[in-house]
Nucleic acid binder design. Sequence first.
DNA 1: GTAATACCTAAACCTGACTTTAGGTCAAGA
DNA 2: TCTTGACCTAAAGTCAGGTTTAGGTATTAC
Lengths: 145, 145
Amino acid sequence: MYTIGQISEMFHIPISTLRYYDKEGLFPEMERKSGIRKFSEKEVEAIRVIECLKTSGLEIKDIKQFMAWCTEGPSTYSKRKELFEKRKEAIEKEMKQLQKTMDMLKFKCWYYETAIEDGNEDHLNQMLPDHLPKDIQVLYDNAHS
Amino acid sequence: MYTIGQISEMFHIPISTLRYYDKEGLFPEMERKSGIRKFSEKEVEAIRVIECLKTSGLEIKDIKQFMAWCTEGPSTYSKRKELFEKRKEAIEKEMKQLQKTMDMLKFKCWYYETAIEDGNEDHLNQMLPDHLPKDIQVLYDNAHS
DNA sequence: GTAATACCTAAACCTGACTTTAGGTCAAGA
DNA sequence: TCTTGACCTAAAGTCAGGTTTAGGTATTAC
């Protein structure tokens, strides 16, 4: 059993945020001892799930829904599984987006390296949009598709 | 040359958002014809850069700074390059985070598949935290590290 | 000539996710 | 005793990134 201060240190999450999560219903089963929150292993795992679902782009109110399902028992297993499957798809999509963004960034790094060498963008402008060096062309095309 | 409506369709960005970007100084060189915005190729490329920098986690005010550097000429090439290098690092970090999140999601999918098969979480609770099937253990450990 | 479109501005409003404030309880140590 | 530190609440405040509203202009279509 942990106090809110211990949990805050463990996860580097502000105490105010933990209280906010609690107020939003993200720890529906959490116990209290004369008003003071007692975080058990259950809540510790809940926090890991909250961070995971948040990173996957889920909103607090939908995380609350998930936590509610968890208290409902085995009848909600398949709902819970489907939620995680959807989050997997969302993350996959986001990773593709990030890869495309990465290609743009790599292209821009090359672009400015070259501009620094040349002292201007004249040569670069002549090469755009489809006479770039092969490896750079790939980045440019992916970023602009 | 494009109107705001054409650009909105091209990029699937609301007109209100394009006007907001303009108000925030993200198109410092944009021309107008009797009050009406004229988006040139320069602004089209600016929008691609805006989307890229936004995805990388940069705030609007910092994107504005970048756009201002672009109007200052060759003296800011190295500042601009450094910005893109930093964004690359940010994206790399984010991708690692997403990979960890993905491992958690995969673990949870397996977890609920198994719970559905078993009808309860008893067997699963016996396996936790370090007697999971090998491939699942890897996901679990990565997600909980 | 009038009605429909597509554009414009300034300013108010909205949303999600927190954070801060103001005021209070309770237990341990000097 | 009294003060320090860790906890508590309700309610207000903050911030980024837009969106909506209200009112206006300018061109084209019938």
